[in-house]
């Protein structure tokens, strides 16, 4: 249950209703920011942020650093078995 697409927030449409314009490969759509804005955080702070878009909502802030790390792991495959997942270490 899943079709989500990464897009960049390029403009705030209406701060009151928490809507912004997201751009996905040159295509623009309105998205709702309720899921990615904590209480009191101004919508403008998300300009330029990449988000995961699903059915008209920004559902997650894409973590550029994690994306880079995932790709780095792929580039150094021999280390994959050793690295594992630090959060699961017991």
């Amino acid at each position: 249950m899943c079709l989500g697409v990464p897009g960049e927030i390029i403009a705030i449409e209406d701060a009151g209703s928490l809507t912004a314009v997201v751009e996905i490969s040159g295509v623009r759509r309105s998205v709702n920011l309720a899921c990615v804005l904590a209480e009191g955080v101004p919508p403008e702070s998300l300009l330029g942020q990449w988000v995961l878009v699903h059915v008209g909502f920004a559902m997650s802030l894409i973590d550029a650093e994690e994306a880079r790390k995932t790709l780095e792991l792929l580039a150094e495959l021999q280390n994959l078995a050793a690295a594992g997942d630090p959060e699961v270490r017991d």
Binding site: V36, L37, M59, S60, I62, D63, G84, E87
Partner: peptide
Amino acid sequence: ENQYRRVVSAAGNAQ
């Protein structure tokens, strides 16, 4: 384990 770290956080989405 979480392979999708660029989008998924351990706690999910609070809002």
